[in-house]
Nucleic acid binder design. Structure first.
Length: 407
DNA sequence: ATGTAC
């Protein structure tokens, strides 16, 4: 049974669930910077997948009182995972999984969204009616209210990105659990519009603090203070973007399920036995240690007692469906994945395409040089990461990928 | 991560 270790801090305590996993020096330095902010409630919690990120480390939980740090939430507001268990089993799957991969790629726009004049596959030309209806029912009104005050948000990819995957480490997978049941798993966030919202408020925070930015250990830790217009607007905007991200994942999952249902040769199946949709890049108002605060989980998942969460490994590694243990010292949180061991550039330098092909030989996935920065060797050992957080979550299901779609 | 400009 693991527990946290204390990292030397010039400010509030830094409690780290990192026993048995590497902790890079640049991550420690960043944690110490964050711990010095005057707005932290109680302490900072560090997850075993921690690594350097813009502003604050990815894989950390930062509770604040009276302020919020937009760059700590990050540019992919509401980024997270969605998973469903189906009633299909491994023996229902065809020998060649390529057809299934193509069907999923066809059903969900993925990849870069190019400029307006160029052809692109990353957004809807014409969003399906289901997407437009969800937008109108849950997102349109809030978006108009934000656009009234922030007209720069008007011309963003918003509706045309609802139900689309994106690029980088965003993916869709078909997995098998320990009982050979088929699952669908996907990773995505709030796409273009969430990115723009984040950029706008990261700038506002720096401007609002212009007079005393020099007092901060890092300019990217600039915060918006409660009582200011920008603080209230950011909280409104970030919650809206998080809802966009959640619905984005829901729509993609619906399209994956219906696309696979349309494949010839598969039996009828259900996909509603176990459904999980969780953010791992977000802010939420919660109560911890007898105080209302804003909890920023940057690469961390809520793990309250009984909460279901998703912890993906990497291409070719295991992923986990977990149940939270509600550990108060972690602000009821767990890691969001394996965490990078190597930066994208370092991974591309260190490994060859042949290394990647060997590491992913059991997975129907991209095997070109464009995904070398996502190769399994670029990530920490997921088993060590899970062991280090044994007092934060219990493992409910262990999944292995058989198909992986990347943007 | 995303969009846009180089």
């Amino acid at each position: 049974m693991s527990s946290y270790v204390l990292i030397d801090s010039p400010g509030v305590p830094i409690k780290a669930w990192t026993r048995g996993v590497d902790l890079a020096d640049n991550a420690i330095e960043q944690l110490q910077n964050t711990a010095r902010l005057p707005i932290i409630h109680s302490h900072i919690a560090v997850m075993p997948d921690v690594h350097w990120g813009m502003g604050a480390t990815i894989g950390s939980v930062i509770p604040t009182v009276g302020a919020v740090v937009p760059a700590a939430v990050g540019v992919d507001i509401g980024c997270g995972m969605c998973a469903v268990q189906t009633t299909l089993t491994a023996r229902d799957l065809p020998d060649s999984l390529k057809a299934m991969r193509l069907v999923i790629e066809e059903a969900v726009p993925h990849g870069r969204t190019a400029g307006r004049s160029r052809r692109d596959k990353g957004s809807w030309g014409e969003p399906p009616r289901r997407v437009t209806n969800l937008w109108k029912a849950h997102l349109a009104q809030g978006f108009e209210a934000l656009c009234d005050r922030y007209p720069v948000l008007v011309k963003t990819n918003n509706l045309c990105h609802l139900g689309t995957l994106g690029t980088g480490n965003h993916f869709i997978e078909v997995c098998l659990d320990e009982g050979e049941r088929v699952w669908f798993l996907l990773h995505s966030g709030s796409r273009g519009v969430g990115n723009r919202i984040a950029m706008v408020f990261i700038e506002k925070a720096k401007k609002d603090m212009a007079g005393h930015l020099g007092d901060l250990p890092d300019q990217n830790l600039a915060y918006l203070s409660e009582g200011s217009v920008h603080y209230a607007d950011y909280v409104e905007a970030v919650l809206w973007a998080q809802e966009f991200a959640r619905i984005n994942r829901q729509v993609m999952m619906e399209h994956v399920v219906s696309a696979v249902r349309g494949m010839k040769g598969l039996p009828r199946f259900e996909a509603d036995r176990m459904v999980v949709n969780c953010h791992h890049n977000y802010v939420a108002a919660e109560r911890h240690f007898d105080r209302e605060c804003l909890v920023t989980r940057k690469g961390a998942v809520r793990a309250g007692a009984g909460d279901l969460g998703i912890i993906p490994g990497s291409m070719g590694a295991k992923s986990f469906i977990v149940r939270g243990r509600g550990n108060p010292e972690s602000f009821e949180s767990c890691s969001h994945g394996a965490g990078r061991a190597l930066s994208r550039t370092a991974a591309k330098k260190r490994y060859t395409l042949d290394d990647h092909i060997e590491a992913t030989r059991h997975v129907e996935c991209r095997k070109d040089s464009g995904v070398l920065d996502e190769t399994p060797m670029a990530y920490k050992d997921i088993d060590a990461v899970m062991k280090a957080q044994a007092d934060l979550v219990d493992i409910v299901h262990t999944l292995r990928q058989v198909v992986c779609v990347k943007g």
